[in-house]
């Protein structure tokens, strides 16, 4: 059965092949009650299109902003979100868990 529409890595490759600027965000660590497991991915392009998820929706906004920065400057970054992190309060990680997300540009 076709699951291609949900295949983040296939979509990332296809978008890049079209010449779009593309960044990939991956959950690398979680602590406590994090909504998406390690390995969950979100792909973002330079026009604001996105597919996949790295949380239940709480941190996607912040991750998309960082992803667009990464598309511009080409630098990979590791982002920490959690209840002890002020940024997490701003973006509202309501589950009380912690999550670490790696963001990289597809060159």
């Amino acid at each position: 059965m076709a699951t291609d529409l949900e295949d983040v890595l296939a979509v990332a490759a296809a978008w890049r092949a079209e010449g779009r600027g593309v960044a990939l965000a991956t959950v690398v660590s979680t602590w406590g009650s994090s909504p998406r497991p390690v390995g969950s991915q979100l792909v973002v392009d330079d026009q604001g299109a996105m597919l996949g998820s790295v949380s239940g929706g709480c941190i996607e906004g912040a991750v998309v902003l960082e992803a667009r920065e990464a598309i511009t400057d080409g630098k990979s970054r590791t982002l920490d979100f959690g209840v002890t992190n002020e940024q997490a309060w701003e973006v509202g990680l309501a589950c009380g868990g912690k999550v670490q997300v790696y963001v990289e540009r597809i060159d």
Partner: peptide, 14 residues
């Protein structure tokens, strides 16, 4: 990630 690496990764998955 380099595009070539992503392609190789997707090939393995396919």
């Amino acid at each position: 990630m380099k595009s070539e690496l992503l392609k190789a990764l997707n090939l393995g998955r396919t």
